[in-house]
Design a protein around this nucleic acid. Structure first.
Lengths: 138, 138
DNA sequence: GCTATAATTCGATGTGTGGCGAAATATAGG
DNA sequence: CCTATATTTCGCCACACATCGAATTATAGC
């Protein structure tokens, strides 16, 4: 029951759902999720902690970066069922697909290009240092 | 997305889950759910409203009583998937089985017997008029 | 119509949660 | 060792939410 409640509560927030869906085909580090969600590092960190406590993601630390990814299936049937529910229901969501597109840009662009795009998209400078550092993907 | 969030938030509360599970094999009116959860009528009413808004239950008014029940399947795939997840994960939960047993008593006992049992179980009088009125099952 | 009862709505209250910035921690690279 | 960077932890604030009691609405029975 507690396990189920942890999962349900973790899934009851739009930004956590977006983060979870973004992990479908790849692992991501916190700074990439920050760029995708446009949230402060502390906020993203807390969200990922909630997801991890619920068993919905795993994390690995490599160098300075912490990578989050979906857990191995078959670990926990409750988690597996929950993830099936989430992906089955939201994969085709417009917002999620848009995230996937933007994520593609975040992963491929150089920091300078990313900076310009953020400025153009939002009409203002990027948040607290988002994407200004040479990301882990290079 | 909004639909999914409504469902996830509705499922992120233990008392709402217990109410939902209790509706598996039967419809129940608010006063019966009150007796099962030991919560004030206003609280139960609000919980059931949340579940209904999410599409997880339907309601029918008959006389003075409002009966809640699970919605017809095939109405909404998102809801159907969510209910499968809930029942698949929680049906065997100890707490839920205990609820089912107590519900059996609530539905079968006369108000006087129910009163005595509540007093014995909790070492105190029942809450705001719980089960002291001739319920709809008689 | 009047009373009793089932349920909902309303108002108040304490608790939980999402968000931020600042400080702390960990690590890579000079 | 010192600096820069990635992440987490901490303290704070605003807002959402679970809960209650009281007031309100709807209905059944006299």
């Amino acid at each position: 029951m507690q396990q189920f409640l942890d999962i349900a509560r973790a899934l009851a927030d739009e930004n956590r759902l977006r983060a979870l869906l973004a992990l479908k085909d790849r692992e991501l580090c916190v700074c990439q999720i920050m760029a995708m969600l446009c949230l402060a590092p502390s906020t993203v960190s807390k969200h990922m902690t909630v997801l991890k406590q619920a068993g919905l993601v795993d994390s690995v630390k490599r160098g300075r970066w912490v990578y989050y990814r979906l857990p191995d299936r078959a670990t926990n049937p409750d988690v597996a069922r929950a993830l099936e529910w989430v992906f089955g229901s939201l994969q085709e969501e417009a917002r999620i697909k848009d995230d996937a597109n933007r994520l593609c840009c975040i992963l491929c662009m150089t920091p300078e290009e990313l900076f310009k795009k953020l400025v153009m998209d939002e009409g203002q400078g990027p948040r607290t240092g988002v994407a200004l550092a040479p990301g882990p993907g290079e």
